[in-house]
């Protein structure tokens, strides 16, 4: 269980794991996530949205960006290693139905969890425009997979190293103006999701976002993941992870996501030093 059957780096800090998890692979639906941790004592539990699954092979795919201690430790695991604890699939699945014209926006590694949603929306008979954006070329993931699915694919980077030189909100606005989509889906960094929502709001385009807040248990028990949606407190783990983006208080959410930033930086620094010491030891 939970054995890594394949690992590859998609860029310097983004890697993809295919993990043996037959039950999760057969039960998971688009939009759902897993919680994992790397040992039984001192590890932390982190949520990761499922990027793909192969029920026949019994595997799920996770795309991860190295940002903190756990994702860094995860990046050091190799094919054949096991993820000690893997729980899922969690969260409510995406509502998949035929809406008509759909625009889907993926920012950075957000393209990975967007992929199964795009896949299901396509199968349901929707016309799909996919916008992928990132700071630079090497942070664009799943471009080929999306190209195979989308009716129309737009790639953009902040620095212009690939595709158009612009933010994802520029093509999103153009599409809202030209074809008034029936649904928008945006997954990526909170700031990107916030501005996508601000872009679609004047056009009245219903916009779904998938939130990836801090969680401990992922089953409703701790409430650490709570966000304000339409003035009400919601738990991302059991009420979400997807919400009507026009109702989400992103500013509050971003502040909450930064609750432990200083401690994490300090901890990560210590982890990196430990790693350097480890590497400098004579073999």
């Amino acid at each position: 269980m939970n054995r890594i059957v394949d690992k590859k780096f998609l860029s310097e800090n983004v890697f993809q794991l295919r993990v043996e998890a037959p039950l999760i692979a057969s039960e998971r639906k688009p939009g759902q996530f897993v919680i994992l941790s790397l040992d039984n004592d001192f590890a932390e539990r982190i949520p990761l949205t499922i990027a793909d699954a192969d029920p026949a092979e019994g595997t799920i795919t996770l795309v991860v960006q190295k940002v903190g201690g756990t994702t860094t430790a995860l990046s050091r695991l190799e094919t054949g290693d096991k993820i000690v604890n893997l729980l899922g699939p969690l969260g409510r699945p995406t509502d998949i139905e035929k809406r008509g014209r759909v625009v889907a926006v993926g920012g950075g590694v957000g393209a990975a969890p967007l992929y199964p949603i795009v896949q299901a929306l396509k199968q349901a008979g929707n016309h799909l425009t996919v916008i992928l954006g990132a700071r630079s070329r090497d942070l664009i993931v799943f471009e080929d997979k999306m190209r195979a699915l989308a009716d129309n694919l737009i790639v953009c980077t902040d620095d212009g190293s690939h595709g158009r030189k612009c933010l994802v909100t520029a093509p999103l606005k153009e599409i809202c103006e030209s074809e008034k989509p029936d649904l928008a889906v945006a997954i990526g960094p909170p700031i990107m999701m916030k501005f996508c929502c601000e872009t679609t709001r004047p056009f009245g385009v219903h916009t779904v976002v998938s939130l990836n807040t801090i969680m401990v248990d992922g089953t409703g028990m701790c409430g650490g993941c709570r966000v304000t949606v339409g003035g009400q407190t919601k738990f991302v783990c059991v009420d979400g992870p997807e919400f009507d983006g026009h109702l989400v208080d992103f500013d509050n959410m971003m502040k909450r996501m930064g609750a432990y930033r200083e401690q994490e930086q300090e901890f990560l620094h210590k982890c990196q030093l430990d790693q350097k010491i480890e590497e400098s030891r004579p073999k």
């Binding site: 409430g223 650490g224 304000t228 509050n252 909450r256 930064g258």
Partner: peptide, 11 residues
């Protein structure tokens, strides 16, 4: 209640 620094006892 959703400020940073407010926790459920569970959490």
């Amino acid at each position: 209640e959703n400020l940073v620094g407010v926790f459920s006892a569970n959490e």
